[in-house]
Amino acid sequence: MVELPFGAHPTSVYRSYDYDARAIEEYVEATRTPESTRAFLDEFVYGPKDHWDYLARLGGSERLAGLRADPVLGY
């Protein structure tokens, strides 16, 4: 088994990182029309050259640091 950091994004991994409510809301918003759905898929699914590029498009380390789980709360 190999760890892929933030591999469950935008969902969460308990005690590791929280779900990304903003990304989920943006996805819901994007799927309202075929055009905006296509734009979303191009940006986040077909566009990224690899997982690291996907994370960079989200906002990179600054965005991801905000998702890190609090060790006491677990989320």
Binding site: Y14, A69, L73, G74
Partner: peptide, 14 residues
């Protein structure tokens, strides 16, 4: 101590 959006939200497992 925080509200979760559903039962799969770790906020309601605290």
């Amino acid at each position: 101590i925080h509200q979760g959006v559903g039962l799969a939200d770790p906020r309601v497992w605290y």
